[in-house]
Every structure is written in structure tokens, then in C-alpha cells.
Nucleic acid binder design. Structure first.
Length: 115
DNA sequence: GTTATGACTTCAC
DNA sequence: CGTGAAGCCATAA
């Protein structure tokens, strides 16, 4: 019998699809963390995979990638994003999401709780 | 097979 | 609230 570890029922292709579908469900003006997206997609502990997938998206995608933030309620800034991180904040503010002085989002008010 | 890296998360100070 | 260390998982070399 083949070794079977906990919960890996999906192939990578299916996992990617599940994550994209989940991100698409995030309502306008709301945000979700990477870990939350992974969990809602049925992929617990795959937060880093979510980030990796979003990194592959181009500018013409219809996926609201800007509504995905880290668990601290903050945008994940990184040199590898080439300025895309700044764009993320602008897009969120355009949807009515407020940032604290420290550049953080109040999760109690703006985090998406699911459906 | 091992090692290093990263749009992450959690816990301990 | 800020920092650092450890854990985690997929990918690339």
C-alpha cells in the first residue's frame, strides 16, 4: 500500500484551481489572509503555495489578488514584487479598505469570514 | 538524494 | 506592538 499522509487528496493542478476559485470569492472591500485562503480551498498549511501562485499572475488577470494579505492584516512587501505591493494598497483603498498609520488593516472589520 | 529560497504562520520574548 | 526562531510546503539547483 502506498504511503498516504494526511490530507493530500488534490493534485497540484486541482490545488491551483481551488485556490484561484477561493480568491475569486472574496467580496469587494474585504480581505483574506494567505492561510485563510489555503484553508478555505481545502489546503491547510499551504499558505506559501498561495503566495507563490499569486506571484505568477499577470496584470490582466480577473483574480482579485490584491485582497489577499498576511495574517497580521498587513500587505506583504517584497523586493521581488517590483512595486506590485504598492499597487495592492492603492487598489484596496479604492475599495474602501482603511489602513492604520502603521499600514495595517483592522481584521475585525475588513477580513472576509467566508460565506 | 540534499540544500536553499520565499506575496506565510505561529509562538516566545 | 516589534523581533527573532522554528515550522511548513512547493520549487529550483
Amino acid at each position: 500500500m502506498k504511503k498516504r499522509l494526511l490530507s493530500a487528496p488534490l493534485s497540484l493542478a486541482q490545488a491551483h484551481d481551488a485556490i484561484y476559485q477561493t480568491v475569486r470569492r472574496i467580496p469587494r472591500g474585504r480581505v483574506a489572509s494567505y492561510g485563510q485562503v489555503a484553508e478555505l480551498a481545502g489546503l491547510p498549511r499551504r499558505a506559501r503555495l498561495v503566495g507563490q501562485l499569486l506571484w505568477q499572475l499577470d496584470e490582466t488577470t480577473d483574480i482579485p489578488w490584491h485582497r489577499v494579505i498576511n495574517a497580521r492584516g498587513e500587505i506583504s512587501y517584497s523586493p521581488s514584487r517590483g512595486g506590485g505591493d504598492v499597487l495592492q494598497r492603492l487598489r484596496l483603498e479604492a475599495e474602501g479598505v482603511e489602513f492604520s498609520e502603521a499600514g495595517r488593516i483592522d481584521r475585525e472589520r475588513f477580513q472576509w469570514l467566508g460565506d
